[in-house]
Design a protein around this nucleic acid. Structure first.
Length: 885
RNA sequence: GGGCGGUUAGCUCAGAGGUAGAGUAUCGGUCUUACAAACCGGGGGUCGCAGGUUCGAGCCCUGCACCGCCCACCA
């Protein structure tokens, strides 16, 4: 890259992001090589829906793993991060059927073939939107391996899995009561139902006992289903109803006799203790019906309308309209005893939010227990780890109580179930390819109309994308993957099923770590939704603050497993951070030529050694944070280091050296920046690449540069402690200046009173610190004249005697009010005294001295001494100021 | 009904049994030649409540309150 062109004064992300985003892809820097001898690190991207447009959830889901992948890549791993999209049956249906409805059409009117043509067209046209947006986030995905859950290879994998499971008896077909969404007109699995507590009613209805004047009152939340009642149930030991055993009651409105049955599952305390039984429309009743051999009368169809069986008064009515009418009729006939308010949970469709309807029909199921048992084991034995670990509990909770999985959907967009039915003998044939005719009777065959649950195919994502069922190079090289990063909302939908299918079809876990990220919420902690109007659009944020700022914000807020409240202010803060780095880099580059100067050990200044020591420490800490997926911690670390150590202190120190023409300082500055950029790169890929390319002596791309390792020789804790003293002196000086309203320009005289000697450093360190200290005091505080207290020995080296924290006083440059300084000292004294008292109390406590670890006791003693010494010096200073006034 | 989180500065959140932190906001002061998207300084806290363990608790234990989420067949 051209190192000569100057950096603009302020950072402008747009051209930079465009340039390097393209460069990385053109150069194939993220393309994985299955033959590489390097250790591998692989992930598959949770495929976004083709219908999707980028939202903050995506931004988070792509940023966090991208940080990991970039970090691993820089560490020399052969990284594969495989992208793709999901066909999202129901979501696509919703989109297309809505547009059909606008033209007065339905999918049934245009037919399956035409519908699928439209769907594929739509996918081709809009399905790419999400991938284009993804690239803007700078996610280092291997686009050469992009997949789609309905591409031919993946479809083959899906069929293969279905056929195998069917052959093994793990997939079966059954006539069963399932959840159906009347709006989406398909059945759903149990976890696709959202339970919401609603304020409902409990209607008490009188049923006459056959052949007597007696009656029984039942309570129900769904009066319309009574039309399909085929029994009345009471508890066998409920004495109130003992005389009804074996009798029949007359179903009102239908005037049909139904038997009274007894079952332990009836709660005597609830309602009247007598319950109507509707086997075709209630899950419990369905089971009761099976147990007691009851008839199943379907009175509500798949669209939520009443059937002929509901009787002429109700047939054709919508279920809710029917409810009103039933209640009305019962009331007219005096059979409605009372109506109570009653809160209860009602199932809603997770896609369209309509109330779901229990629906009796033929469906396909996965017999899940045998698969779940293995999947439980691999988490129990630690083969798969959840991060944070307590999500494993959620996983177990569901897995232990898992129910068979209904996988058929009455939709067209998706993987059509590879099952054929013989028109003549009804035989079912399941195969990869359509059989020509029935292998039993030779009859013609019809393929099952339904498609598979989208999640059935997603479950195969970690190996289906790598070429399975073929034993490909990629599959060999990259399965199992190392990390699955996703939201807790799809642990059941997706994570659990991937584990089950991975174990079943690869015999190995699909991934080692499951990182659970939280939900992105707004500042009021509400979920972002269109209807709330609180959406923060990532593309808008990128436009406004830059991708790096967005990424850094998400990382800084990402505490594992916790929801994060996104704030635009914060993002603006990280935009400023990018600008800060930019300007710091400008300063560094200004002080470099075409070549990077070499470091000469002998010329290293105190500050140079200090920043190297800090760098070694921060490098180690950052790696440790990333290893634990503590993105917030890593972000915080690097942010603080760059802004408040590198910029605020080191660059200021370096100016002293640079002014004197110290080329080693220039070299250290350049080297530190180089390392900083590499440390920061996983978080802020674009700006770091841009600056790095301007630094002399770097390589092809920072994406494949070495991630820094802590230099073992650089860490120097004693030196860091000395620097802390220097910083204390400087900060105290600034404080005094500020409180006395002394302008930076004005020269002041400082009085340094030597502190206690406890924190003495080694002799050579002292010499250095003293020199640096003078530099800094001049350079940073503008104090040209230093004056030291009487106790200080006079001599050439003004600060020779300073060995510990210093109390600083000032002699104002001109007569001025010393009141503020006096107040400051008094406040400081009060603080010191309060703390002294606290520690004294502690040390007077015999138990504390006896039982606390010796080191802690010693620490407190030292601290007490420090405080007492400090109190004394403060007193001396106060006396001086007091005397001056 | 069962389970899981949360409650720390005005706001958003970190926090490792041993001196309560960050960002931001706020107040005051600075154009100190990398950066006003900046610099310097200040103020701001009974760590939800009540007990307990401990020499010592924001942190561990018990109970309670409130907020949020997940699961669940009292119709």
């Amino acid at each position: 890259m051209n190192t000569k062109d100057e950096l603009a004064k302020a950072y402008d992300p747009k051209p930079v992001e465009e340039k390097w985003g393209k460069f990385w892809l053109d150069e194939g820097l993220f393309v994985a090589d299955p033959k590489s001898p390097k250790p591998k690190f692989s992930m598959v991207l949770p495929p976004p829906n083709v219908t999707g447009i980028l939202h903050m959830g995506h931004a988070l889901c792509f940023t966090l793993p991208d940080i990991i992948t970039r970090w691993k890549r820089m560490q020399g791993y052969n990284c594969l991060w495989l992208p793709g999209t999901d066909h999202a049956s129901i979501a696509v249906h919703n989109v297309i059927e809505r547009s059909l409805a606008e033209k007065g059409l339905t999918r049934e009117k245009i037919g399956r073939e035409e519908f699928l043509r439209i769907a594929w067209d739509w996918k081709a046209k809009y399905g790419g939107a999400i991938t284009g947006q993804l690239k803007k986030l700078g996610a280092s995905l291997d686009w050469s391996r992009e997949r789609f859950t309905m591409d031919p290879g993946f479809s083959r994998a899906v069929k293969q899995v279905f056929v195998s499971l069917y052959d093994e008896g793990l997939i079966y077909r059954d006539y069963f009561l399932v959840n159906r969404c009347p709006h989406c007109r398909t059945v759903l699995s149990d976890i696709e139902i959202e339970h919401k507590d609603l304020h409902g009613k409990l209607w008490h209805i009188r049923y006459a006992v056959e052949g007597s004047d007696e009656s029984v009152v039942v309570a129900t939340t769904r009066p319309e289903t009574m039309l399909g009642d085929t029994a009345l149930a009471v508890h066998p030991e409920d004495e109130r109803y003992a005389h009804l055993h074996g009798k029949r009651v007359i179903l009102p409105l239908q005037n049909r006799p139904i038997p009274v049955i007894t079952d332990e599952r009836v709660e005597r305390e609830f309602g009247t203790g007598a319950v109507k039984v509707t086997p075709a429309h209630d899950p419990v009743d369905f089971e009761l019906g099976k147990k007691h051999g009851l008839e199943q009368v379907i009175v509500i169809d798949g669209s939520g309308r009443m059937t002929e069986a509901a009787g002429p008064d109700f047939a054709g009515l919508d279920r809710f309209a029917c409810r009103a009418k039933v209640v009305e009729k019962l009331s007219e006939q005096g059979l409605l005893v009372k109506v109570e308010a009653h809160d209860h949970a009602v199932g809603h469709c997770y896609r369209c939010k309509n109330v779901i309807e229990p629906h009796l029909s033929w469906q396909w199921f996965v017999r899940i227990k045998p698969l779940a048992d293995e999947a439980i084991r691999v988490v129990e034995d630690g083969s798969i780890e959840f991060i944070p670990a307590n999500w494993a509990k959620t996983y177990f909770e569901w897995m232990y109580n898992i129910h068979d999985w209904c996988i058929s959907r009455q939709l067209w967009w998706g993987h059509r179930i590879p099952a054929w039915y013989c028109r003549d003998c009804g035989r079912i044939m399941v195969a990869m390819e359509a059989p020509a005719k029935c292998d039993k009777c030779g009859g013609a065959l019809d393929q099952d109309e339904d498609v598979l649950d989208t999640w059935f195919s997603s479950a195969l994502w970690p190996f289906g994308t790598l070429g399975w069922p073929d034993e490909t190079e990629d599959l060999e090289a990259f399965y199992p993957t190392d990390l699955m990063s996703t939201g807790f909302d799809i642990i059941f939908f997706w994570v659990a099923r991937m584990i089950m299918m991975g174990l079943k079809f690869r015999g190995r876990i699909p991934f080692r770590h499951v990182f659970i990220n939280g939900l992105v919420r707004d500042l009021k902690r509400r979920k972002m939704s269109k209807s709330e109007g609180n959406i923060i659009d990532p593309l808008e944020m990128i436009d406004k603050y830059g991708t790096d700022a967005l990424r850094f914000t998400l990382a800084a807020l990402a505490v594992p497993g916790m929801d994060l409240a996104l704030s635009e202010e914060r993002m603006a803060g990280y935009q400023a951070f990018a600008n800060k780095i930019w300007n710091a880099s400008r300063f560094v580059l200004m002080n470099l030529g075409e070549e990077r100067p070499a470091v000469r050990e002998a010329e290293l200044t105190f500050a140079d050694r200090w920043i190297r020591s800090r760098l070694a420490e921060v490098t180690a800490e950052l790696s440790s944070s990333l290893e634990q997926y503590k993105f917030y911690e890593g972000a915080d670390l690097i942010y603080h280091f760059i802004w408040h150590e590198f910029c605020d202190w080191y660059i200021e120190f370096a100016k002293v050296g640079l002014r004197e023409g110290n080329r080693t300082t220039a070299a250290v500055l350049a080297d530190a920046l180089d390392r900083i950029l590499r440390l920061l790169h996983p978080f802020m890929p674009f700006i770091t690449e841009e600056i790095w390319q301007h630094l002399p002596g770097t390589g092809k791309s920072i994406t494949v540069a070495d991630f820094p390792r802590p230099e073992p020789g650089w860490r120097d804790e004693a030196l860091e402690r000395d620097m802390a003293l220097v910083q204390e002196v400087v900060e105290e000086t600034r404080k005094i200046r500020s409180e006395n309203k002394i302008a930076p320009r004005e020269k002041i005289k400082l009085i340094l009173v030597e502190g206690h000697a406890k924190r003495t450093s080694n002799a050579s360190g002292k010499a250095t610190i003293i020199r640096t200290e003078s530099e800094i005091l001049r350079g940073l505080t503008g104090a040209a004249e230093l004056e030291f207290c009487e106790a200080m020995p006079a001599g050439d080296d003004l600060l020779k005697g300073v060995t510990g924290p210093c109390e600083i006083g000032i002699i104002p440059p001109k007569p001025t009010d010393l009141g503020p300084e006096r107040e400051r000292l008094q406040k400081e004294i009060a603080k010191v005294e309060a703390e002294t008292a606290k520690i004294e109390r502690k040390l007077e406590n015999i138990d504390f001295v006896a039982k606390a670890p010796a080191a802690v006791v010693e620490e407190n003693r030292t601290r007490l001494e420090e405080l007492r010494a400090r109190r004394e010096k403060l007193g001396q200073n106060l006396a001086k100021v007091g005397a001056a006034s």
